[in-house]
């Protein structure tokens, strides 16, 4: 799987939510695009990741 342009071995079958949590992403401050399509937060738990997937994860920090 490609995550933010880098190849990452996917390992066992997992949902997008599992992947984000096991990689320490704070769900409240991110936006996720899977294969060019934005994934609503409510669907993170239902999306199953595949080896050929391209994932873009944007994480926000505070300040403005």
């Amino acid at each position: 799987m490609k995550v933010n342009g880098k190849d990452i071995p996917l390992g066992e079958k997992q949902s997008l939510l599992d992947f984000l949590q096991s990689n320490n992403y704070d769900i409240r401050v991110i936006a996720v695009e899977l294969n060019g399509k934005v994934i609503p937060k409510s669907e993170y738990k239902d999306v199953l990741l595949k080896d050929e997937d391209k994932l873009e994860i944007v994480s926000f920090v505070g300040g403005g």
């Binding site: 409240r28 991110i30 936006a31 934005v38 944007v58 926000f60 920090v61 505070g62 300040g63 403005g64």
Partner: peptide
């Protein structure tokens, strides 16, 4: 200013206003 608000706006615009471009900021 707040990261959660930034993510909320970006997610909502990308989901619900698909024709609009959003120029956001993070880290300054």
């Amino acid at each position: 200013d707040k990261a959660k608000e930034k993510a909320m706006l970006v997610n909502t615009v990308l989901e619900k206003l698909p024709g609009i471009k959003i120029v956001a900021a993070s880290g300054m």
